[in-house]
Amino acid sequence: MIEEFLDEDLIIVVDKVEEKFTMIEKMVDQALRKGVIMTREPILHKIREREELESTGVVEGIAIPHARTEAVKDLLVVIGVVKEGLDFKSLDGKPVHIVFLIVAPEEAKNKYIQVLARISRMCRQEDFRKTLLGAASPSEVISVLEKFDT
């Protein structure tokens, strides 16, 4: 189910980022460069608004910032890998290494919730987290996601 939204070009790998919004900006900019979105500010605004309400960091090194906005035409998934970890102000206080950015328009609400639910469920599996954190390239990230997406 998730694989239909995955694209190697929408996976970025960085060594280090100081701040969570810098990482989110990099991910949105990647989508902009690839022509998947036409504008960045409304998306960043929605994500920032959502993150200010409560951090969407989930568990054990994985965060899922998400929002709905009409600035995208369809559900968008961008994945970011931060090798050295990033302080995402998550509830468990642990550094985040993988960021799933999920944005969707109003009409894709059900799909958006299904994808969020699937990723959240996968992220609770220790096997999945370990394998994903060990992925060294975008193609490996996709392989891991495809393997566990059942």
Partner: peptide, 23 residues
């Protein structure tokens, strides 16, 4: 579990609209 996450995200969507902090 996946069904549970869906309920949670539906609730979160409603909470965001109401400006309520959720975890």
């Amino acid at each position: 579990e996946e069904e549970g996450w869906k309920y949670l995200y539906y609730l979160e969507d409603m909470a965001v609209n109401e400006g309520v902090k959720t975890a």
